[in-house]
Design a protein around this nucleic acid. Structure first.
Lengths: 340, 340
DNA sequence: CATTGAGCGCAATTCGTTTTGCGCAATTCG
DNA sequence: CGAATTGCGCAAAACGAATTGCGCTCAATG
């Protein structure tokens, strides 16, 4: 025969067992109409006994709401996106929403199609989207956004998407603070290990640093540790001289530090290094990485909050974007420029 | 009026527009019965034009399958669980399943209830569960398992759950390797910073180490960095002498290293430290942490694979548990015991 | 004692899709 | 030329819960 788990109980069966109609069972559960306490007690007893739970699919079909929101991140295994995910999950739970996760990994178009389809099929009511690269006007995202689907951009703003709220950090102000910090320490020759050129956050951070270091050399990486390592490798090979290195995120900064270390350059004595984000490893490496702390958890929470507000309001129109403050965290990787 | 996104198209409307019945539209999509190429072309045109997508809820109600699996992890923002999540997500995607994530955070019973309810309401067809603490016989997990719900245990085995397959690493062998490694370096006085006492993995790892260090002192932490720091703090305060320190995971080992460093003890000259897991930070700290590498991605993938196999087979009965190999990774945190 | 009203329960309809049982037409074969 | 076959499309019945119109039974009231 079948497994014990094969068939869950239906309202029908509960009703039959209690000798009443499904309506009465439904009303007992919802309380939309009075049910005699005697009948109610009997029904509730049966429900507990059989472990009946209303089928989510049927409920969903009738109500038109799935009670789920989606989260699309490049890679859920990154600490950084994990924090966002946790924030989104926390708030979704508080508001009684479930969370469906979509890793976009390398922005695989098939994957992308898949989770936007979740929106179309009403599997999810809205989507928190974290971009990791430049969004071209031909992207699905654009199409969805223009059909005014409930979407909130987390962590990374996308230009050309009017009516789509975003939750980001004060990238410019953070970079500004880093620039001034190193400037105050006497540095003049700087290198910026930037992220993808097309990303808004990269542009803002570079601009913030440039305020103090207008002539800084800029090279572009992919936000991964290895990328910071490789880029410094090239710079050293080319004989580029510098005493300050800005990483557009902590991972690249750490990668850069590794390469510098291998080259016999001491941090911060020979080169001061800063990052951005304040990820978990920033505080545990030696020396500690001076960086700008972003509150990723809060970015996740606020994103989910905006999305759910929009869902409740029936439209994302009028939902304002949010920009969160950042904080300069000075650790051991920065110091005064050494006298020659 | 309403938003552009307010009402999606239904099959009814497509059928009406094409001048056919819903049946014909359905058959055009599914191909279960032949449809004249002329009609099919017209219908497909309308579908593309209107951007029609079948409603997932209705489909789900009819088929009884949601096409979703769940993943319950203690904290999605940990790198460690993030890797598991990514593995599960990867495989789920390959098999055309969606993934619903549940952070159990501190094992909040309300949360726990919530995601087991996802199983009951058939919102998810199965669950990959990662335990982070001792499971008592009164837990929901036990109830669900005994009703033979499709559940796979990832990373952590739970005793007393017959018929529930698990995917774990060779904890004993890994710990054994670490013990022998330090033993070969001449160490004799060791401390084990273990995890929760009730966890199978902790028991196995301690046993593996004890093979080489039968008299090792064992203290228990909660797997967090701070916990390793605090425990070493206590040991030092008590004047406990040791030259080898085993962390039951990397985070605690790193925390221990920090405290040792602050106490003026050099790693590995005064104390050799090892961890377990090989998380991202193990390779970037100085000195690098000697540890045992677990393939978390693969644990996630295999867990999802077993679950989906069980779903396809209609029962988890006969699905075998899997134990994955581990690899000793020797870095700078271990060295020969210093001559007194 | 008849009338009203409230309390309570039933049958039927709806949500959007998938799946059958049939029937109608055009073709092919004996 | 009539009969068997095939291609194609329609109507109707599920799936499980939520809602609504309606009717029944008591009790209270004039």
């Amino acid at each position: 025969m079948n497994d014990a788990s094969s068939k869950p109980w239906t309202m029908q069966q509960i009703a039959a067992a209690a000798g009443v109609s499904v309506t009465t069972v439904s009303h007992t559960l919802s309380g939309k109409r009075p049910v005699s306490s005697e009948t109610a007690l009997r029904i509730r007893g049966l429900i507990d006994q059989f472990g009946y739970v209303p089928d989510a699919g049927a409920r969903r079909l009738k109500s038109g709401r799935s009670g789920m929101i989606g989260l699309a991140v490049p890679d859920i295994s990154h600490w950084y996106f994990g924090r966002i995910a946790r924030g989104v999950e926390e708030l979704a739970n508080e508001r009684d929403y479930g969370l469906i996760i979509c890793s976009t990994s390398n922005s695989d178009p098939r994957r992308e199609k898949r989770y936007f389809n979740l929106l179309r099929t009403r599997s999810i009511e809205g989507l928190v989207y974290t971009a990791s690269r430049e969004i071209s006007p031909t992207d699905e995202l654009m199409r969805m956004a223009s059909s005014s689907s409930p979407i909130v951009l987390a962590d990374e703003e996308v230009v050309g998407l009017p009516g789509v709220p975003s939750v980001t950090s004060l990238n410019f102000a953070g970079a500004q603070a880093l620039g001034r910090h190193l400037r105050a320490l006497g540095h003049t020759r700087a290198v910026i290990v930037a992220g993808f050129a097309g990303l808004r956050s990269t542009v803002e951070r570079v601009a913030g640093i440039r305020e103090s270091f207008p002539d800084a050399i800029v090279v572009h990486g992919d936000f991964e540790l290895q990328s910071g390592y490789d880029l410094v490798d090239e710079l050293l090979a080319q004989g580029v001289g510098f005493t300050a290195l800005f990483g557009c995120n902590d991972y690249m900064a750490v990668g850069a530090m590794r390469r510098l270390h291998e080259a016999g350059l001491r941090v911060p004595h020979d080169v001061s290094v800063v990052g951005f984000d304040d990820v978990d490893i920033a505080g545990v490496i030696t020396p500690g990485l001076t960086t700008v702390r972003q509150d990723m958890l809060e970015i996740g929470r606020r994103s989910a909050q905006l999305l759910i507000e929009g869902l409740d309001a029936g439209s994302m129109r009028g939902i304002p974007s949010v920009t969160l403050p950042v904080e300069l965290v000075v650790r051991g990787s920065t110091g005064p420029v050494a006298g020659e």
